[in-house]
Amino acid sequence: MSTIRMVSKLAGVSTATVSRALKNPELVATETRQKVMEAVRQSGYRPNQLAKNFSSGRSYNVVVLVPNVANPFFSRVIRGIEQEAQTKGYAILLGDTQGCIEREQEYARMGLTSQADGLIQLDRRFPFSDDDKALAAAVPFVNACERISSDATYPVVELDNRGAARAMGQYLLHCGHKDIAVITGPPDSPIVRDRLSGMQDALLAAGLGLTAERIVQGDFSMRSGFAAAEQLLQQNSLPDAIFSMNDEMAIGAMAALKAQDVRIPDDISVAGFDNIEFSAYTNPALTTIDQPAEAIGRQAMRALYQLMHQLPLPQSHLVLPYELIIRDSTQQKVHS
């Protein structure tokens, strides 16, 4: 059985430093803390968590609410949260809510019953019930990826979604596309509204517009992307390009187009959003917007840690940058 002395020997630090790194990681230099955590991993050391929790009044657990854990984008965000949490001595309790309000509220209640020290919400709803809202103010809370409110009193970590969609619109216009269709997500989602506004910004600046029939709603799943593309195929004419508000819907749309022998990008360009790993391996490889998913997760956990330990927040609203990734699913339109 490993001991704290074995950890200190492996890390090359004193037992007092090991204890401090585990109990109060914010008081230990990052490099030293990483050495200690690596030594803990190698040795298999397990501190007396019950005694630690009892003496500190903390659970050292953090609840992360995710609308769909199978979504590759959210998997990357969770990875970033987990990486940051581990360096700070916290464990992650994952709540796969599937967009269910009752599940969200049940998981959120863990913060009210001392089963968790804080909460990260990756969806667009405030997760506490009306009955719990008065007590919820005392629970450290961070909103990431989606945006619950524009005037939030809690930290928010998000992407410049409007700017990213505008950049994609400008790129598609630069390719010569003038008839662009958009596959959206749920209409009550702030990021969906931002991405739609960004595409409209680009089109309006070019003297163009986005007609109602060219806006088709999906739900961020491949299945809905397939159905949305089928709907576009039934219209009188095919658009020059399709912008999908996430990669999964774009991949579904590509499958529907191929099923009808529509060539990508010869007949139509297709672009997505998120840059999930699989997007680089579709045929053709998918043009998309890269979101720094792991960085979003790390920043969300850092903000939550600051709240849980009543430390000052450098920023309460953090907007991370995007990158346009150009691949083979889009090309310059050749006018006859």
Results as ranks from 00 to 15, higher is better:
249 M>I: 03
226 F>R: 14
282 T>P: 04
304 L>M: 12
305 Y>H: 14
68 N>T: 07
291 Q>V: 11
32 T>D: 07
40 V>R: 08
107 Y>W: 11
315 Q>A: 09
19 S>N: 08
162 R>L: 08
196 L>W: 02
137 A>D: 07
169 G>M: 11
273 F>D: 08
28 V>F: 13
140 P>S: 03
221 S>C: 01
156 V>P: 08
215 I>R: 11
2 S>H: 02
148 I>C: 13
140 P>Q: 00
332 Q>I: 12
199 M>F: 02
150 S>R: 11
34 Q>M: 15
108 A>L: 12
335 H>R: 09
120 I>L: 08
38 E>W: 07
240 D>Q: 07
280 A>H: 05
262 V>N: 06
157 V>I: 15
207 G>V: 08
214 R>G: 05
14 S>P: 12
6 M>A: 13
177 H>L: 07
309 H>P: 04
81 I>V: 15
197 S>H: 08
183 I>D: 04
194 D>W: 01
135 L>P: 00
56 S>E: 06
25 P>W: 08
55 S>I: 05
59 S>N: 10
166 R>H: 04
109 R>C: 07
233 L>M: 14
324 L>M: 06
67 P>A: 01
70 A>I: 12
262 V>T: 10
278 F>V: 12
2 S>C: 04
114 S>N: 14
294 E>H: 01
23 K>A: 14
290 D>P: 02
211 T>H: 12
237 S>R: 13
17 T>N: 11
83 Q>R: 14
114 S>D: 14
64 V>W: 05
94 L>I: 15
203 L>V: 02
6 M>R: 13
210 L>D: 07
134 A>F: 01
12 G>P: 09
104 E>L: 09
248 E>R: 09
139 V>G: 05
131 D>I: 02
136 A>S: 12
275 N>Q: 10
140 P>H: 07
34 Q>H: 13
93 L>K: 05
191 I>M: 08
304 L>W: 06
270 V>P: 12
156 V>Y: 02
136 A>Q: 05
297 G>N: 07
108 A>Y: 08
43 S>C: 03
47 P>L: 11
232 L>A: 01
100 C>T: 09
141 F>S: 03
44 G>Y: 04
269 S>Y: 01
224 S>A: 02
222 M>E: 14
211 T>Y: 00
170 Q>Y: 00
108 A>Q: 06
127 P>E: 00
329 S>V: 04
272 G>T: 05
80 G>S: 04
263 R>K: 12
49 Q>E: 11
10 L>V: 10
278 F>L: 14
40 V>N: 10
143 N>E: 04
174 H>M: 10
5 R>I: 01
18 V>P: 05
285 A>Y: 01
32 T>G: 03
184 T>Q: 08
171 Y>V: 05
110 M>F: 14
119 L>R: 02
195 R>K: 12
2 S>R: 06
2 S>A: 15
143 N>A: 10
291 Q>Y: 02
306 Q>H: 15
132 D>V: 00
5 R>K: 14
41 R>I: 00
194 D>Q: 15
195 R>E: 03
161 N>R: 03
259 A>G: 00
77 V>E: 11
299 Q>N: 14
100 C>I: 14
88 K>Y: 15
101 I>P: 15
157 V>L: 14
230 E>M: 08
35 K>W: 07
96 D>F: 05
135 L>D: 09
